[in-house]
């Protein structure tokens, strides 16, 4: 993985994960530069809504960055780590605000990683980076195809290091150009984006 070849200039990174991804994120957060000039958007599958405030607290304790649950119509600002709320899909509007959507689950998931990858790709294009972490289903794969079509940068966790390799693996089966990421490389990868 040639992370030193990735130049700055990215404005947003969307990180998608499911089972086995929280630990990767928690381990990476302390090493991510707090005042990065890009927005971090985290879309994780969770079993129930009550887990979410716990998750936000947990992530907050690992970084000086502002970590917050996404509010609808909120402007997307750099230097902030946004967490998708439970039971809503997260979309990005052209004016770079978030909008939320409580429609049907996608890949049995709400929030769905596909939905946010696709929507962010349309708005940010080549200034978007997408990271897909461990998980047990195939959410994210289709979104990465769309992100690739909009020239976004794609990184996928090495399935060999993933607690649940199915999600990174199904993405690798369909996505053409991507970087393979070791969990300990995640922070450096993100720091190099901006």
């Amino acid at each position: 993985m040639a992370e030193d070849l990735i130049g700055p200039g990215y404005q947003c990174v969307v990180i998608g994960g499911s089972a086995g991804s929280i630990k990767v994120l928690i381990d990476a957060l302390p090493a991510i530069t707090p005042h990065l000039r890009l927005a971090i958007v985290v879309v994780l599958h969770r079993k129930n809504a009550a887990d979410n405030s716990l998750l936000v607290h947990l992530l907050r304790s690992k970084t000086l960055m502002l970590v917050k649950e996404i509010e609808e119509k909120e402007p997307i600002c750099s230097g902030i780590c946004y967490i998708a709320p439970p039971d809503y899909h997260v979309l990005v509007e052209k004016d770079r605000t978030f909008s939320l959507d409580a429609s049907e689950k996608v890949n049995f998931s709400r929030p769905s990683i596909d939905v946010t990858f696709e929507s962010a790709a349309v708005v940010y294009g080549a200034s978007l980076a997408c990271v897909l972490l461990s998980g047990a289903n195939s959410d994210g794969a289709h979104g990465l195809i769309m992100a690739g079509a909009h020239n976004a940068l794609i990184a996928i966790q090495d399935p060999a290091t993933a607690e649940m390799p199915a999600m990174p693996r199904s993405a690798m089966n369909v996505v053409e150009n991507y970087h393979i990421l070791q969990p300990e490389q995640l922070a450096g990868f993100i720091n190099n984006l901006a």
Binding site: L91, E93, K94, S99, D101, S103
Partner: peptide, 9 residues
């Protein structure tokens, strides 16, 4: 209507 979700629908 907010465009991103309308477009998706």
């Amino acid at each position: 209507y907010a465009r991103a979700s309308l477009k998706r629908r």
